[in-house]
């Protein structure tokens, strides 16, 4: 069985937007920055906004080098991160690519 590619060469888009729901926002910000730095994820943008339900919200834009699922898994494991997901636009773009590929 051929080994799956692990060279991160193919990219679905130039960048990806991640939406993170946070507990202690400052703590989350520091942990997210540390996670990105440790794994050498290029950070393109970061916005911090108050959430409606008492939680905070971080919107993180990173270069999509094919490691998004791993990055999300790491971010979800951070205790200060309540939830982590691809931004809605990113999900739609990926769905479109998948559909195109299937067609």
């Amino acid at each position: 069985m051929p080994t799956p590619k692990n060279d991160h060469a193919w990219t679905a888009a130039a960048s990806a937007v991640l939406e993170l729901t946070t507990g202690d926002t400052l703590a989350a910000l520091r942990h997210v920055a540390a996670c990105l730095a440790r794994r050498s994820y290029p950070l393109l943008g970061l916005a911090c906004t108050p959430g409606a339900t008492g939680n905070g919200r971080l919107v993180v834009t990173v270069a999509d080098d094919g490691r998004l699922e791993r990055l999300l898994a790491e971010l979800r494991a951070l205790p200060e991160i309540v939830a982590a997901r691809l931004g809605r636009g990113q999900q739609a773009a990926q769905a479109g690519l998948v559909n195109d590929a299937a067609a």
Binding site: M1, T3, P4, K5, N6, E69, R70, A73
Partner: peptide
């Protein structure tokens, strides 16, 4: 080799070796 990777930490999957 094909790889089946069992680990309690999902962040370890595909980190150093892409698993099937």
């Amino acid at each position: 080799a094909s790889v089946v990777h069992i680990d309690i930490d999902p962040a370890e999957h595909h980190k150093n070796r892409q698993a099937h």
